[in-house]
Design a protein around this nucleic acid. Structure first.
Lengths: 124, 124
DNA sequence: TCGTTGTATTGATGCCTGTCGATTCAAGCT
DNA sequence: AGCTTGAATCGACAGGCATCAATACAACGA
């Protein structure tokens, strides 16, 4: 899934339909404020893991809603979890965020546009 | 908008509600296969710009639908456009993709999790 | 000025998704 | 066993969104 080849790029070559569909699933997981906050809370945790019981009270949302969002992030391959006794702990899977960062990074020195200014007119 | 400070990080510190809401809007723009393909077609274009008339026939979608997606990408700050005679040309705004790449990049040498393996159990 | 071509906007429709209450499941304790 | 706590699943509902047909707008040419 999602680019067997290292990093096709997104900015270097047109995505085919299948690549775009796979990639859009991951971005969909990031396309929600609650999930972004959950992800950042998990990723920035010192020990590398967070108990759900520490995440839930940070939101004005019902517990099933948080659980639903965590499932979404997990299915996108961004986090994983493990039950330990009564509690469940989540941690980041940096492979996926690394891959996304790579996909959004343009190759250095390759001026795809002229530094984001509007290109020189071609239809003079 | 979206991180006045250079790059808060997402992976280094918990996002507050406002940051998360802003950031989610950009990811929402990327959370669609058609928009991802449009963006990659625009970004990978040699001259740095693409005419809409070159984009539309690449999809099995009605012309207003493509126009709608382009508007979405533009409102997210990912692309911009200009009318030149009869045609409209789009190009990438690399600032935004650069910013996203930075947000998804973890600081080197900072082991947020233990290399993505499940962390050592704390409840032994 | 009128028709033609390229693009954007509008309004409507059906699906997707975020949210909740209720319930279920898992694990530990008495 | 029975109770309690933490977390996931289920079913339902409302709002959001991708899509289209129809229309409007912009620029060019005859």
């Amino acid at each position: 899934m999602l680019g067997q080849e290292c990093c096709p790029g997104l900015l270097t070559a047109p995505l085919d339909e299948e690549q775009a569909t796979e990639l859009s699933k991951v971005f969909k997981a990031l396309a929600d404020p609650v999930r972004l906050r959950l992800l950042s809370m998990i990723a920035s945790r010192a020990g590398g893991e967070v108990c759900v019981c520490d995440l839930t009270p940070a939101f004005d949302l019902a517990q099933p809603t948080i659980s639903h969002h965590l499932k979404h992030l997990r299915q996108a391959g961004l986090i994983d979890c493990e039950r330990r006794g009564t509690w469940v702990y989540y941690w980041l899977l940096p492979e996926m965020t690394d891959r996304l960062a790579g996909i959004l990074t343009r190759p250095a020195g390759q001026p795809l546009a002229q530094t984001a200014q509007k290109p020189a007119g071609a239809a003079s």
